[in-house]
Design a protein around this nucleic acid. Structure first.
Lengths: 238, 238
DNA sequence: CAAGAACTGTATATAACATAAACAAAACTG
DNA sequence: CAGTTTTGTTTATGTTATATACAGTTCTTG
């Protein structure tokens, strides 16, 4: 068992860290590092160079420590990434001050959530797959569920609606994150070349591209989706 | 430049493979393998044991070949994964026979797409991040865009709506895929334990759980989202 | 206050990974 | 038939995560 992503393992360990149930032992030498420090450094590396640049060696080297020293603070890399995620997501948003009804509050939630993902594109990679939710992430969820509950949705509906909105935000974030790396123009050109060789195989795509369906402002897709979602949710409420 | 995920590189190489522009040379010995064979085997491994089990060594060993032999057929692992994705996604769905209007056709698209992701959860991992779309994937997109175009949406709206629906499918797939691995009950229990220690910090989550917001059938979230989305889109059309 | 237990950080080692480079055999082409 | 091209192998490199054993440090306990 080495290298990456095995998946099997005690989920409790990571959660203890995430939820801060660590009681400092009083025997040995004073630790010269801390989970917080390590996590913050890892986040900085990810911010600057992406999640791929985050390795145990790299983090340790930043402190001038050996790689293995980190394992005194973190059971493994998966747990560290979980910590990074919860740290990077940050405090839950405060939606109480948002003027308007529940629709405006939920839209605001989505916008702020998108901003988090946009600022740190590596969060998309880091949060794909099933994970243990940290307190911050659960806080974000709580904020959204509170809005939905107040609006009058049933618990099941609250959950479904949350999944819907959060999924949309992720989706937009993924779309726009890629648009930074690979210009949409390049993509259109590259695909367009192949497309022109198979003219009748993807007629709708060709038509949409020629109709200008791929040039738009950054947060246009987010707002479009929100309009649809909120309208649909509203209708369901009545 | 070694190990995983560097990201930089000529996107053209992979696309040549994806879009099947390979002309067989007639000089050397007959190749005893083929891209198709390699891709299919890789998909089988991923189907059986997940994407993490797919390594060049593993694939080569299946044929009784050396690891490096694969590099005569594929420029690198990233390109192979791209091939796997397009193979695994499969042929575009035929929506012409779907009775009803554009809403029913789009819903059918979403259901079939979800089935693909459900059957092969590793597709979620493999398709996160920005990629070059293969012909099959573009076919799926074309199918959806065609429905939206026929319904009367503008090219920009077509694209936004596609992103919205596809994102929802992904979101649901991710949710249910995790539910297989980690039972929802376990999750509720694990989180619930922590939750009970912070009773007033996540009131909405607690209320939703106690209201039964987390016990539901597998494709319930998909249908819920579709109802909202389609209603919203319909409203926008008018 | 001394002995020992517990903890920290290190050194060393392992296994898995992707992939580069050089080479031998094979097959077609002139 | 000689030469060129291509295949598959061999060998080697660099990067991962992480297990294990150890040396030094600090508190607790007799």
């Amino acid at each position: 068992m080495a290298a990456k992503g095995d998946g099997g393992g005690d989920p409790g360990r990571g959660m203890d860290l995430l939820w801060g149930a660590a009681d400092r032992p009083s025997r040995g030498p004073k630790p010269r590092l801390s989970i917080d420090q390590i996590t913050r450094t890892a986040v900085e590396i990810a911010d600057a160079e992406g999640l791929g640049a985050v390795s145990m060696q790299r983090i340790a080297a930043t402190f001038g420590f050996t790689t293995m020293s980190l394992y005194r603070y973190v059971p493994g890399k998966a747990e560290l990434v979980a910590l990074m995620v919860d740290t990077a997501i940050g405090e839950r948003p405060d939606l109480d001050a948002v003027p308007g009804g529940w629709r405006d509050r939920l839209a605001q939630w989505a916008r702020q959530c998108l901003r988090v993902f946009t600022r740190r594109p590596w969060l998309l990679e880091a949060t794909s797959g099933h994970r243990v939710m940290g307190p911050n992430e659960l806080g974000w969820m709580d904020a959204a569920l509170a809005v939905l509950a107040e609006a009058g949705f049933t618990p099941v509906e609250q959950h479904d609606a949350f999944l819907l909105v959060a999924g949309h935000v992720r989706s937009v974030a993924q779309y726009t994150a890629g648009a930074d790396t690979l210009r949409v123009d390049e993509w259109s050109a590259a695909v367009g070349e192949r497309l022109s060789r198979h003219p009748d195989r993807f007629p709708a795509v060709v038509a949409a591209i020629q109709g200008g369906g791929y040039a738009k402002a950054a947060d246009e897709p987010l707002e479009f989706g929100l309009r649809c979602l909120l309208a649909g949710l509203d209708e369901l409420l009545a």
